[in-house]
Design a protein around this nucleic acid. Structure first.
Lengths: 107, 107
DNA sequence: TTGATAGGCAAGTGAATGGTTGCCTATGCT
DNA sequence: AGCATAGGCAACCATTCACTTGCCTATCAA
């Protein structure tokens, strides 16, 4: 049950626990390969998140430690890419039927 | 993007953030409809988790608030059942290909 | 070389969280 | 009735965590 290259499940779930980090993943889903400043701008503009650059940087570090974000440096720029591979274990672990499967009805 | 009957995404991710709670979900996956005491026993026996009954009870409350666990009372017993429905949004939100999809290789 | 841009490191702070202990209610058995 | 079992509630404590401020390094352009 190896999760993802030395990254344990705990890191992934801890990373997903914060709403700001989930929003960052949303932004990277929409546009891959953004820099730190670009992500800061989008969080501020689109999501009204008043958070410092360092705050965002720390969130990105957590996401990277969890294997959910990968980075590549080019000159003075560091680009961030989304990697959803670690998320797959969630569905597998608890036998989650994927979309269009049996739907629950809770009125 | 309604998640699950009034339960917001935040509750689900927060619930999954704790390793003990994930173990509880594991146990309920293996055997559905356990009582609080049964879950306590299993955590102690199978997982060497030295945690008080109240501790487990609080975890179950968090899982229930997240919609991941449903309960039914019968006499003095309260049975706990797993509900994976809230987990489906995770795969959908970040377009996670399900198992047997394209696999990542990271050496 | 000077200045501006992109990012990193480290310490400090307040709030949230997991866990405990102590006591209380409800159901069932004899 | 009396006792044991199953569970609930509330206050308290220690740790973790998100976020900030302040300063430092590296790359590029004038």
């Amino acid at each position: 049950m190896v999760a993802y290259a030395g990254v344990v499940a705990d890191d992934v779930f801890k990373a997903l626990a914060d709403p700001t980090r989930r929003t960052i993943l949303d932004e990277l889903t929409e546009k891959s390969g953004q820099t730190l400043f670009e992500i800061c701008s989008r969080l501020s503009m689109k999501h009204q998140l008043g958070i410092s650059r360092q705050g965002v940087s720390q969130h990105l570090a957590v996401l990277e430690a969890a294997g959910l974000v990968e980075t590549r440096r080019e000159g003075r720029y560091k680009f961030h890419d989304l990697n959803t591979a670690p998320l797959r274990q969630i569905a597998e672990r608890w036998h989650v039927p994927h979309a269009s499967g049996p739907q629950e009805s809770t009125p």
